[in-house]
C-alpha cells in the first residue's frame, strides 16, 4: 500500500561516479515533468512547472566544501494556466 507524504529526506555518502545516478534521476525527473521521491511506500510527487527559482551556492571553509542546489517553485492550484489569465493592475488602497 502506498500513501503520500509531504516530506522526503535521504542522506548517503557517494563518490564522483556514484553521485551521477542521483543527478541523472533528478535530470530525468525534470525532463519528464515529474519527480518521484519515495521511502517505505510513502510517495512525494513533485511536478516542476512555470518559473523555478534556482539557487546555487558553493563555498569553501578550510577543507570543508559545500555545494548546494536549491530549487523552489509554486504549485498552481485548480489547474489554471497563468498564460490564460489577463494581467490586472489594481490601485493601491490607502490606509
Amino acid at each position: 500500500m502506498s500513501s503520500t507524504t509531504n516530506r522526503f529526506r535521504h542522506e548517503s555518502l557517494q563518490d564522483c561516479q556514484s553521485i551521477m545516478n542521483y543527478l541523472t534521476a533528478l535530470k530525468d525527473g525534470f525532463e519528464s515533468g515529474a519527480l518521484l521521491f519515495s521511502t517505505d511506500g510513502r510517495n512525494l510527487v513533485l511536478k516542476p512547472e512555470g518559473l523555478i527559482n534556482l539557487h546555487v551556492e558553493a563555498k569553501r571553509k578550510g577543507e570543508e566544501i559545500k555545494l548546494s542546489l536549491k530549487m523552489r517553485w509554486n504549485e498552481k492550484k485548480g489547474g489554471e494556466d497563468p498564460e490564460d489569465q489577463p494581467l490586472l493592475i489594481e490601485p493601491i488602497k490607502a490606509g
Binding site: 535521504h10 548517503s12 542521483y22 534521476a25 533528478l26 519527480l35 519515495s38 521511502t39 517505505d40 511506500g41
Partner: peptide, 11 residues
C-alpha cells in the same frame, strides 16, 4: 533504513 526511490533510481 527503508527502500528509497528517487525517480527511476531504486535504493
Amino acid at each position: 533504513t527503508k527502500p528509497v526511490s528517487i525517480g527511476k533510481l531504486r535504493l
